[in-house]
Simulated assay, not measured.
Amino acid sequence: MSLKTNLHSLSEKVEKLNPVEALGFLSDLFPRKVVFSTSLGQEDQVITQLIADNDLSIHIFSLDTGRLFPETLDLIARTESKYNRKIQVLYPEKASLENLIATIGINGFYDSVENRKSCCHVRKVETLKRALAGNSIWVTGLRSEQSANRSSMRKIEWDEANHIIKFNPLLDWSYDQLISYIQENKILYNPLHDKGFISIGCAPCTRAISAGEDARAGRWWWEESKKECGLHAK
């Protein structure tokens, strides 16, 4: 039976469980086939804590695009030290990256949405595909509140691009609920969050947002788009 065929029954079971119970259930059901992709955002730091403190058999990895904030890279080291757990860091393929830069230039992503998506594809999407290959469950830190594009997502979904089941354990969490959990559990987070950077990606593509702006407004602020890089395309 294919993974996609199991989707409905899995969804029914997972919807009744809290995030820790659901993560444990899936890691037992798919041993060594459940992976978590962290971008070190606040949601992801919560999930890392849930995995580490409950000693769940879920592999954690992160994508280093080569353009991340120093604060993000420092947070990887601090998180590994706190939980005594390694985070696998993956990088873009050298040849693909060199070809991208030769084609659009070092900052060519500012010139058009097409160029930006090409950059995201090489630095993130291709790397993610390598990380997910051969696995059954992809855990993410997506919340429906983050953007209109994510409001229709479900906790358990089929990701056609990567042929894997995607699990979003914090999908129905509010931002206030997230912050309260971080404070109560003393979870490490990126200091840029305290400076108005709510959604943090690559340094050239992220700015702080003003009061009342959408959480994703600081990502690729110079363009009008769905504010997605292609990792979570619908």
Rank of each mutant, 00 (worst) to 15 (best):
Y181G: 05
S118R: 01
I198K: 03
G105D: 13
K124L: 09
P169K: 06
P92H: 01
A203V: 11
A208N: 01
D159S: 12
S151K: 11
A215R: 00
I137W: 02
F167I: 12
K166E: 02
Y189H: 10
G108K: 04
L128E: 00
A131R: 05
N168M: 01
R150P: 10
S199M: 05
E98W: 11
I137K: 00
Y110V: 09
W158E: 06
H121Y: 13
I198Q: 00
I209N: 00
D111R: 09
I198F: 09
V113E: 06
L132N: 09
P204I: 06
G108Q: 07
D159L: 07
L142V: 15
C205H: 05
R154A: 15
D176V: 10
S147H: 10
I164R: 05
H193V: 08
A217C: 12
L188G: 08
R143P: 10
K117L: 13
E160M: 10
Y91A: 01
P191E: 04
D176K: 08
G196W: 04
A133M: 08
K129S: 07
S112R: 00
Y91G: 08
F109C: 05
S180W: 09
I156R: 04
I156T: 12
L132A: 11
G134C: 03
S118W: 08
A211D: 00
I200F: 10
R143L: 08
N107I: 15
S152P: 12
S144Q: 12
I104M: 11
N190P: 08
I137A: 07
Q88V: 15
I200M: 05
Y189S: 08
I200N: 00
K129D: 10
P169I: 15
L100G: 13
E157T: 04
W158H: 04
S199V: 04
F197E: 07
A211T: 03
V89P: 04
A217Q: 06
C120Q: 07
Y189N: 02
W138N: 03
N115R: 00
I179Q: 02
T206M: 01
E145Q: 12
S112T: 13
S118K: 00
G201R: 00
S174D: 05
S112G: 02
N185V: 13
S118P: 09
I200A: 04
N162L: 12
L128I: 13
S136A: 15
P204T: 06
